[in-house]
Nucleic acid binder design. Structure first.
Lengths: 332, 332
DNA sequence: CTGTTAGCGCATTCAG
DNA sequence: CTGAATGCGCTAACAG
């Protein structure tokens, strides 16, 4: 079904049909004829061809590292909210934590009918930079700092520091065990480097040094957190706090704790902390100390930023840093 | 940058460039010239226009009800795996549990450059049926049974029945409290109707009837499960089992239990069960009785089904029902 | 208000 | 092997 066929069936020109579709001038009489034919045939214009002409898709592409994440879903919820209100639709591309596929999908979107791209980033590689510099469509980055695009990120360093301070005070109150930290790759500047550095700084402000053998590396998965925490518990019996770079990892640490306590019933009491304020974790555990970031807000701001560029050609570079809130930090 | 400009710069025809790009006959000499120009300009052909011509996008669209779900991410992981292996990319559209937006995105994909669509459905409305019948591109439905498209679904009824049996035996072992069920909307034939009906059937096979005032309705959210469970606990002190239609809801029920036990310290011991085998929940709780569905498998099968239709024009309608496994059902 | 016309960027005949 | 020409389905001037 093409616009031409509809035009022929209705006995008008294709331009008339186009106008009917897009609300241009057209007589009521022809309007009726066209309407009838379209209803009969179930015709639906090709978005495809329309975009080739108009260069406007009313669509934005969002590249995310993974699908199954509360933080990311909160960000996309914020994005979706703004987009829907302004007549845009949203398409997602998940890369499964693979930076190469990230660039692949960025390119896909660039040469696709999207008006703009939002990248929820894990790490900004050289390839990323290259893309950001040369992109034909506007891009905003959420969750990572970069000077190559408009970006909106969270105060991971500050959050880490706050958590470090909390860990120090919990540690002192409980009377001197050791603090452990489960980190993620430092290639991720936000969740990796910034949180860890902040955490160390927070400890240091209380006179505590985080020694290397109390630090473990984990992937962004519960299972990986479980392994990291278990190795810590087995090798270092004097641990009383395990701080984890994400709540997902913290869940694994809690699991490890359960398992470990079965084998060593009267071992030291250990506190697990996280980052991200995962709701499911909060529900089930009653709430561990964690950091609440304004994920939904960053999604909202990010989408607004993008639409400003798309619709008004806003050229001034913008960097937004969003704060955080320490959760369940007072109780213990 | 268009193919024409590249052609001009390289001193050849646009057709030559096109052939270069797509591996047609071309002399090494011209190949070199074109290669050079493309590298200099960073030219990238418009996927857009290419698809308008070829009608082939090497892309499939997946419509999902929400992003933040382990079951859905397992399905999309399966889909993505197959697609990647066969040279396709995947785009996601999330509808936030809103059936109307579901149809909207289906239409978007239909008129977009995708070769096929996978719908991970919650409910099949009349609008859905209409779409499935008339769709220009092949569609497969995962997670719901429908006769209007190739579909692949899980044995929710059987799973419900197994859970009902388990609940009955737990109940009898503990000596006669009441069983409660937190359901989801029956408009969702799988997670709603089938699981509930199966659950009732399972109970009945042990001679137990599920009475209406021990049933609550919940949304697909932890918070909603919390509210439902709390109202149950407060109104029915004789409950000893709360079975929930999803693990997400079960997390809320566990939270409610914690809260309730604080107020009523020596209340009856209550077991919470779920469906879906959520890994985070398992980690933190040590594992409640739940059902493991082959979500990843259904994603794999679904993608294979779709590609068969796309690439080989497979016409025979297919319905696949996948089994399940009861998890943590033996311990108690 | 309306039809005719000319492309959007590309792949693909068809003659060379 | 190659270039000129055609058209995918649609919208945007342009003259009526």
């Amino acid at each position: 079904m093409t616009i031409k066929e509809i035009a022929a069936l209705a006995g008008v020109s294709s331009a008339a049909v186009s106008r009917y579709l897009n609300g241009g001038y057209i007589s009521d009489e022809k309007k009726e004829q066209i309407k009838k034919v379209i209803e009969e045939t179930g015709y639906y214009p090709s978005t495809q061809a329309r975009i080739l002409r108009t260069k406007r898709a009313s669509l934005v592409g969002v590249v995310v590292p993974k699908i199954n994440s509360e933080s990311i879903s909160r960000i996309t919820a914020g994005i979706g909210q703004v987009l829907a209100a302004r007549g845009y639709q949203m398409l997602l591309a998940s890369t499964d934590n693979c930076p190469e596929r990230e660039v692949e999908y960025l390119k896909l979107f660039e040469n696709y009918p999207v008006d703009g791209i939002i990248l929820i980033g894990t790490m900004i590689t050289a390839e990323h930079k290259k893309f950001l510099k040369g992109s034909k469509v506007p891009v905003v980055v959420i969750g990572q700092y970069t000077k190559h695009a408009n970006c909106i990120y969270h105060d991971d360093y500050g959050a880490g520091k706050a958590m470090g301070r909390l860990a120090a005070s919990l540690n002192q109150a409980s009377g001197g065990g050791h603090i452990a930290y489960i980190r993620v790759t430092r290639e991720d500047k936000s969740a990796g480097a910034a949180r860890e550095d902040g955490f160390r700084a927070g400890l240091k402000s209380a006179g505590i040094e985080l020694s290397g053998d109390y630090v473990r590396l984990s992937e962004f998965r519960t299972e990986s957190g479980y392994n990291a925490a278990l190795s810590l518990l087995e090798e270092k019996p004097d641990i009383d706090i395990i701080s984890c770079a994400t709540d997902t990892i913290a869940a694994g640490a809690i699991e490890a704790l359960h398992v470990f306590e079965k084998h060593a019933p009267n071992s030291r009491r250990v506190t697990v902390t996280g980052f991200g304020d995962n709701q499911l974790l909060k529900a089930v555990t009653g709430g561990i100390p964690t950091i609440h970031f304004g994920y939904k807000t960053s999604g909202i701001r990010g989408a607004e930023l993008l639409l400003d560029v798309i619709e008004r050609g806003e050229k001034i570079p913008v960097e937004i840093k969003l704060g955080f809130r320490l959760v369940n930090g007072e109780e213990e």
